[in-house]
Computed example of a mutant assay.
Amino acid sequence: MTKSRNPVRRSGAALGGVRGAIAGLLSAAILSGCGAINHMMYKTTGDVMQGFSKDHTVPYLMQRDDLAMSCAMSEATSPLLMSFGRVTNEPDQLAVMLYLAAGGCAEERAREAGLEGLAAMHALRAEEAQDAAIRQKRHYALAARRYHKAWEHHNAFYGAPDKNGCPDFDEDIDGFIYMAGLLSGLQALNAEIQSTSSIGVPKNIGSTVARATSCLDNETWWGAPMALRATVWAMIPGALPNGEDPFQRLETADRQGEEAGVRLSHVFHAIAAENKGDQERLRNIIRRHAEAIEAMPPAEDWVMVDAIATQVIVSISDRLWVENVGHRTPMGQLGTFWDDQAEATETMDLDDLL
């Protein structure tokens, strides 16, 4: 007859199994608790970062004129700040500024490649010019994607302009970001055209932006909303309302911007003049901008906006110079042109070499 197993040993084994199960449950609870705590911490951090960026980072940057530093910051921090959308509300409003700035970085590289291509053409270096043209289109394609992302986040936060009325702006910065989103939409379309590729930017975005500018106070925003609207009127066939003169509106916006110390309207005016092929008007706008920034410093709270306007005006001036004489606008000579005075130009070139 065989002996039965030891009941004490068997009950001990059972007890050990129960203890193991309890320990497993406790471990799972502790780990899940840590996950919940971490999620709460991440969410809180994300909310704080979004609020801090809107209330302090953006206003701080707007008071600075170092565009290269702003560009580097937007490209470097966008993934970090946008990743908080995984643990809290999507930072749509902040994303408008981040992607608009990052798109501006890519567009500036496109303009640089364009200048290199023009210089190569002037020097009859065909292969180098072709390579620069390819790089320019690649940069514009990236710019278009980034601008379009800004436009999508703008619509997510404020509502699509073609489907919603004007939003309420609790603070001035809300109105500014709304205008930045409209600008990003127009820039997305322009960059897509320059890239000669399809990014998926809606082709009616120009007319949508033009209508949405009516949500913004023209006096508050240095004439820029009307300038943006008039530029669309000048560029898109059939967009001009009866009885309107886009260039007259742009002249009025220019005066408002000059008086406010934020000359953004000059950029829109220059774009409209280029689109019409009006070289004399374009030169006058560049001269006017150069005189305006010498006569009056930028508005304290919007230094960067004015600096961006100057950067674009300089790039347009550079293109004209490179096309005609093979080099950019000489230092300190914005508002002058190679054919103003032949002797002065020759002396200026010699000084640059020395």
Rank of each mutant, 00 (worst) to 15 (best):
F157L: 06
R135D: 07
I177H: 00
A143M: 10
R146F: 15
D170G: 15
G223R: 00
A156H: 05
A120I: 02
A144C: 08
C215G: 07
R138T: 12
T208K: 12
G206F: 03
E127L: 11
A191E: 08
L142G: 01
A156L: 08
Y158N: 03
F157D: 06
W151I: 02
K163R: 11
A180D: 10
A141K: 05
R211G: 11
H154R: 03
A119M: 08
W221I: 01
Q194N: 13
L186M: 13
Y147Q: 04
P161L: 14
T208W: 04
K163I: 02
C166L: 08
L189C: 01
R146M: 15
S184T: 02
D217M: 11
R135A: 10
A156V: 13
P161I: 13
A143N: 02
H153P: 09
D170F: 14
S184M: 02
Q187A: 15
H153T: 07
N164F: 06
Q136W: 03
V201Y: 07
R145L: 12
A188C: 09
R145N: 06
Y158M: 00
N155W: 05
R145M: 09
I173E: 04
G181P: 05
I193Y: 12
N155I: 09
V201A: 01
K137Y: 05
H148S: 10
G200K: 04
R135W: 01
L118C: 03
D172T: 12
W221T: 03
Y147R: 07
A141H: 06
G159A: 00
L186N: 02
T208A: 03
N190Y: 11
A120K: 00
D217R: 14
L142A: 06
T208M: 12
Q187G: 09
Q136C: 01
T213C: 14
E127A: 12
W151D: 06
P161M: 13
K137F: 05
I193Q: 12
P167G: 10
K203D: 14
I205C: 04
Q130P: 08
T196G: 05
M179V: 09
E127Q: 13
A133H: 04
P225H: 02
H154I: 05
A126M: 14
S197K: 10
A160Y: 05
L216D: 02
G175Y: 09
E219G: 07
L182T: 00
D131H: 12
E127G: 03
F169L: 14
T220Y: 08
N164I: 09
V201T: 01
F176L: 10
R125W: 04
I205Y: 05
N218I: 11
W151P: 04
A129I: 01
D131Y: 15
E192M: 13
Y147K: 09
K137M: 15
G200Y: 04
N155D: 13
S195I: 03
A160V: 15
D172N: 13
Y140I: 14
V209R: 07
